[in-house]
Structures are given as structure tokens and as C-alpha cells.
Amino acid sequence: MSERQYMRVRADMPPGHVRTPAYLRGKVGWVERTLGPFPNPEQLAYGMQAMPLPLMRVRFTMADIWGADADRPRDTIDAEIYRHWLEPAEAPHAT
């Protein structure tokens, strides 16, 4: 298995049309696969010319999203996040 590429979702909370769910902001996951490029929905939504962006399927563990509230820590969530919402990160926990 190739090395995991970890990414942190930006924790920003701007108003307007955004496709990055709030519950994932600030959380760290790893890239499951890279898709796209796809036009930026934050521009498409307002009828503007949209910049093509890589779209990453990022996989998070329930533990890394919900902490002690996690139902089953090892279950996972995958979500598609546009590249400009992601920053390279360290693995979230020592394993």
C-alpha cells in the first residue's frame, strides 16, 4: 500500500455557496483518490466563469471527526473536497 497523503480541511467559515461540509472543517483525513479537475462550484453558483480545480476524495475515521463521541472509531467517512479547501497535514494520531 502506498503511503497515505494526509490533508487538513481548512476551518474557514465564509458565507455563500460552499460544498465543504462544516463537520469536516479543520479535520484531517487521507486522499482516497483524486478526481477532476472540476469547475469551482463557489463560482458556478453565482453564474461566474469557474476555475477548474482538482477534486479529492478524502477519507476520515469517525474517531478523527467525532472524537470521543464516535459510535465506532474505525468506521470511515469519505467526502469530495475541492483542492483549495485542503492543506497538507501530518497523520492525526501516532500509530
Partner: peptide
Amino acid sequence: PDTTTVRVHDSTADM
């Protein structure tokens, strides 16, 4: 069963 991993997929964008 606990031995099964649940993988939730949040359909947030183009797929």
C-alpha cells in the same frame, strides 16, 4: 457485525 467496517460516503460534489 463489529468485524464489518462501515464506510459512509457523503456525496458532496461532482460524483
